[in-house]
Design a protein around this nucleic acid. Sequence first.
DNA 1: GTGGTCTAGACCACG
DNA 2: GTGGTCTAGACCACC
Lengths: 133, 133, 133, 133
Amino acid sequence: MFFEIDPSNGVPVYEQVSRQIIFAVASGGLVVGEMIPSVREMARTLAINPNTVARAYRQLQGDSILEPVRGSGLAVAKGAPGKCKTARSRLIGQRIGSVICEARQSQLTDVEIRKMVDSTLNKSEQNNGKGGR
Amino acid sequence: MFFEIDPSNGVPVYEQVSRQIIFAVASGGLVVGEMIPSVREMARTLAINPNTVARAYRQLQGDSILEPVRGSGLAVAKGAPGKCKTARSRLIGQRIGSVICEARQSQLTDVEIRKMVDSTLNKSEQNNGKGGR
Amino acid sequence: MFFEIDPSNGVPVYEQVSRQIIFAVASGGLVVGEMIPSVREMARTLAINPNTVARAYRQLQGDSILEPVRGSGLAVAKGAPGKCKTARSRLIGQRIGSVICEARQSQLTDVEIRKMVDSTLNKSEQNNGKGGR
Amino acid sequence: MFFEIDPSNGVPVYEQVSRQIIFAVASGGLVVGEMIPSVREMARTLAINPNTVARAYRQLQGDSILEPVRGSGLAVAKGAPGKCKTARSRLIGQRIGSVICEARQSQLTDVEIRKMVDSTLNKSEQNNGKGGR
DNA sequence: GTGGTCTAGACCACG
DNA sequence: GTGGTCTAGACCACC
């Protein structure tokens, strides 16, 4: 916790919000029972419309990742971490699969694909081992 | 020549069409001066709306990858292969970059990311060395 | 005296409180002039927010079902039993009407509706003849 | 098909919309593959805001009761009738259960409850046997 | 034409 | 203060 939004990303803003909450829960950045920022606060922080945040939160409630706490907001639901880890693998895995599929359609060989991946990974060195960002 | 379309792909159909033409030119599947199928024929082949094909062709003309040949249709333009190779690298590279970016945002380490890529590459062994698909 | 609250019921908590007081008065469980528990005590008993209890009491005062007794709290008002019996019929009757209306909209026949009602009535046998709950 | 909306119903408008579509599918009024009215048309018909209709439709898509048909709208999805019949029983059954529960809490006997149900059923005679509405 | 996203702002219910 | 609903209107992508 915390992340940023790219409105010109193709990916809908409300989806970026819900994904990043999923990721935060999956990685333990948000723990079960913890309250998440209110709709209005999150909207202020991300400089987006409260309705957009509300939509993301509503979707996460539908997936039982968030649950309402009467009168005080939304909290991470009980089974959420498991669901979020699964969802994370699915989301990332799907995107990897689809990129590779397209790369192959373009007649790139697996060797070339791997090379592009490696160079991208190296270019912007990872920083998530010991506290980056 | 030729490829298939997945209408429930997220990627717009017209873009799938134009991308795959770009890829075909980049890999030499379509050579300079070669005529491409008419809008109607392509639409019939791919079982999609002719307007959608027309839109892809229009876009490719705008990028000077296709050029009109009076009275007979559209052909691969002169400088196309170079442009298409560049475009291919850019398109694939961008998507790889964006997937890796998101994977990192989700707190996956580079090691885990590489593992997911490898497993995807191995899962559906490559078949583009000797003419598959 | 007294009942329980289901906070995840759809029905607002304060309304559950006021309804059940109305029902208690209607059925003679609370008699005219009898003091009802203080806001704080009631809140503690039901494990809900005192504001919520206060709101229910306020509403009941507005309907002249409760009346303030200087220096000691709220008591069941003089004309309350009659009003409460009427209110009970109205409240329950309205809900029955609305359920039946919706059931019919859903194309269930009256026969089917009656069957569902009967089965529900039988499933959890009544226990209010001789003092249950 | 077709129904009406009561905006001062307590039940959210978007929920009334989605419910009635569920009921229509459950009762065979809408069959698998059939297109449903467009968001804009439905909004015009019901005199409500298109966003409200869209929300109902979105929810139904999430439940795989509707599916998008590219460029032409939304259609009843494949497994929808089964899901809708189940959902209908659940929705109506729950409401019946909750009304009876409350009626009992109010100290009404089962006999009295049944009497109220019967009188309501008789009051506005059923008309869904042979083509009413 | 279709659905989808986003913004803005009002109003309500609940605690 | 919280979330939820609804309206209004703009803009976009797709067919």
